[in-house]
Nucleic acid binder design. Structure first.
Length: 268
DNA sequence: CTATTTGTTTATCC
DNA sequence: AGGATAAACAAATA
């Protein structure tokens, strides 16, 4: 589920635990979500540490404990974070529970376990955090950068390319559709066929959708307004808010894609 | 019982 | 060699 803005929302769900000290950590050891984690070290070394800060970058979250404990969480398809009271009973999908002083519990649940936990002990931020690509809303994400990438992926459909985290960290399926719809670009358009004018539109709406999503969903998971594609894309018989014509759904780039044929034209 | 899912990695094909 | 695409991962929901 979680894309850029949802991840920001879930980061905040652990904020009640800021400044609090870890008492103990419960882990579902055999779960795939811990495939790259030394769970024994996590359970042994996190207690005693204070939750100092939390951050997001694209779909990646970072929780800093003490001065050298770095906990990374990727929510995959169905991951969720929450803070619970001390009488909370963990369910079978609560794979990580961090028990804090004063009885708060920081819970990570993930039924499908496509998510991923990371844990590094070091004085410097770990590579998996510092080597992330420039965020879409950062200074470093220039129009030239977008242009280079479209050039390099010239034969792939733009929908598939927008989902590539190496260049568009945080963009997921619904955001990609929303961006293309606003930019009036057919999702099947090969990147090499995108005209300079359309490229500028794409760049503009890419940033716009990220900002809008963070504003509406990232703060308190509000409902997006009806003039977004968002509210119309899931259900059968959806209507394009721009043209009042029927929306179409089809698999493009391996993912369910929704677009408005008379608004976004044909592929390439 | 079958089809579907807002994500990523790996394998395979071109 | 590098890019494009399909399959795999796992479990709930319709």
């Amino acid at each position: 589920m979680p894309e850029l803005a949802e991840v920001e929302y879930y980061r905040k769900q652990w904020s009640p635990g800021l400044e609090q000290k870890v008492v103990s950590v419960d882990v579902n050891y055999d779960k795939r979500i811990f495939r790259d984690v030394d769970t024994l070290a996590l359970v042994k070394n996190l207690p005693g540490q204070q939750l100092m800060s939390s951050h997001t970058h694209g779909k990646q979250m970072l929780f800093v404990f003490g001065s050298q404990h770095w906990l990374g969480i990727h929510l995959g398809m169905t991951g969720k974070t929450s803070t619970q009271k001390k009488d909370y009973e963990a369910t079978k999908h609560d794979h990580l529970v961090i028990n804090l002083k004063l009885g708060l519990k920081l819970v990570l649940s993930d039924p499908r376990i496509f998510g991923k936990v990371r844990y590094t002990q070091s004085s410097e931020p770990p590579d998996w955090w510092s080597n992330l690509p420039p965020a879409v809303l950062s200074e470093a994400f220039t129009e030239a950068r977008l242009e280079d990438f479209l050039q390099r992926r010239s034969r792939a459909p733009i929908k598939a390319v927008l989902l590539m985290q190496e260049t568009f960290p945080g963009v997921g399926n619904w955001m990609a559709d929303e961006i293309l719809w606003r930019a009036r670009l057919h999702p099947g358009t090969r990147c090499g066929a995108i005209k300079p004018k359309q490229r500028r539109e794409l760049y503009h709406h890419l940033g716009e959708v990220c900002r809008d999503a963070l504003k509406v969903i990232g703060s308190d998971w509000g409902k997006p307004p009806d003039n977004w594609l968002f509210n119309h894309r899931w259900k059968d018989g959806g209507i394009c808010p721009k043209t009042q014509c029927p929306l179409v759904r089809e698999t493009i780039g391996g993912r369910t894609t929704c677009w408005s044929p008379d608004w976004q034209g044909g592929p390439s």
